[in-house]
Simulated assay, not measured.
Amino acid sequence: MTQSSEVLYKKRLENIVEKTIEVIESSKQQIFEILEKAKDEARKLEAQLEELKVQVINVIKEVEMCEKKEKKCRLKLALVSKQFGHLSEQAIKEAYEEAKEAQIELALKRREEKELIERRNELERKLLDTKAIIEKAEKLSSQINIALNYLNGDLKAMNLQLEQLKDKQALSVKIIEAQEEERKRIAREIHDGPAQAMANVLLKSELCEKLITKDVEQARLELKNLKEIVQQSLKEVRKIIYDLRPSALDDLGLVPALSRYIKNFEEETGIHVDFTVLSDYQRLSPEIEVTCFRVVQEALTNIKKHSRAKTASIKFEFGMKFVSIIIKDDGIGFDKEKIGQGYGLMGMRERVEILNGKFEISSFKGKGTQIYISIPVRGVEDDSVASG
């Protein structure tokens, strides 16, 4: 590969990652705008609520005064009734009118008190809902920052790898093509998943703002839907991050990481996978562990998408000079002529061959598929390994 071709591939790969980052940055900005609108709304609601609380306190005092006045007028009216024959018609009329006015005034004040309390309660509910939106937006923003940091860091690591592989031109082509396809997949997943969900969050939050003053029940329903969208978006972001680099692979090693991945695969697909380690497990170099993990991951993805299998098996054997993997399924299989076709199988083969390993696949229609992989532990396959 010429230097100009290498620069071209590198530039194309960087563009893929940069576009992915742009999508996330745009979504992050939308979430930030939602967050700021919600905070402004919360501040307005808090100010209105404080003002309304003062009004409620004042009207309660006024109601108490009206109640005392109305009670006083009733006592006076009772006294007038007892002295009915000794008072003038004008005095009796004035006593009745005064009592009536006191009752009307008290009824109006009580009605005003009730309306103010209802408004206060409504504002308190609205404030709680707005604060819930703020909390969810802040959590989602934090998750997006994690994804951005990872991608930015991954881009730097990728550039460093490419610089180190300048002398391995044939392998560089395969690595660049594989990573370019991976970045496209990530961009599609983010665009079709979290990015779309974030746009939906923005629309839902605007709808909630409009409904809160008109239809509280509908607003609550929309907020519930908004919560589900945010939860699903977080789940998708976490999955994308996990697919980029499972933390368990670095922290625990290959076998524990695969055990966790296979368990999740079984729960998601309903396909039973028998995972067996035939020898004592030993930690391998990072590049070998990553290759083994990705090959198994791609094989299970193919089983899920194409095989219609009900069960599968994965067997590992860790030797002094090699690690071998056998992956089988009881699916529908495919024609021999199609073996090796499709990016999934080619990507698996290339990963193994980069480490001087062997990759063999056999499949027959109606009889499932078997993949055999052997990778030298030291990265160089000698005669004894080849014969094994």
Rank of each mutant, 00 (worst) to 15 (best):
E101N: 14
G347Y: 05
V63M: 05
K10R: 04
Y343M: 06
L300Y: 07
S279M: 08
R351W: 06
L45G: 06
Y9W: 08
K53G: 04
T269A: 12
V296N: 02
E266L: 11
Q179E: 00
V216S: 15
E381V: 10
S362L: 05
G85C: 13
S387V: 04
D129M: 14
A102Y: 06
L75H: 09
V56E: 13
S374Q: 00
E337N: 00
E217M: 07
A248C: 15
G85A: 15
A386K: 05
Y242W: 13
H86C: 13
Q161A: 08
L252Q: 15
F32C: 13
A47F: 13
C208A: 13
Q179H: 06
I354Y: 02
E89I: 06
T301E: 15
D243W: 12
R120E: 11
E222Q: 02
A299Q: 09
L155A: 08
I144T: 06
E222R: 08
L223S: 03
T269H: 11
Q370A: 04
E222I: 00
Y150H: 10
F265Y: 11
A38L: 11
Y9G: 07
K367N: 00
E62D: 10
H86Q: 14
K114E: 10
V59W: 11
E267P: 14
G253A: 05
F265L: 10
N121L: 01
I186N: 00
I339G: 03
K204H: 04
G253N: 07
I34W: 04
K114L: 10
K174V: 00
I332L: 03
V59N: 12
V54A: 14
I373L: 00
Q164W: 04
L87Q: 02
L79N: 10
G270I: 09
S141N: 09
E64V: 10
L165T: 12
E381S: 11
E118M: 11
I104F: 09
K239C: 12
T369D: 07
D329K: 04
L234P: 15
E22P: 12
F84L: 15
T2Y: 15
D329H: 01
L79W: 14
K367C: 07
H86E: 14
I332D: 05
T369H: 02
I176Y: 06
S259D: 15
M348I: 01
D215S: 03
I375D: 03
N152R: 02
V377N: 03
E206V: 02
K93A: 11
Q48G: 09
E101W: 01
K28H: 08
T311I: 09
E177A: 02
L140E: 07
I176H: 01
K336N: 09
E189S: 09
A147S: 03
K39T: 13
K68L: 02
I229K: 04
I31D: 04
R74Q: 07
I314L: 01
L171E: 09
R120I: 08
E266Y: 13
R260Q: 15
V323Y: 00
I339M: 05
H306M: 02
S324G: 05
K239E: 14
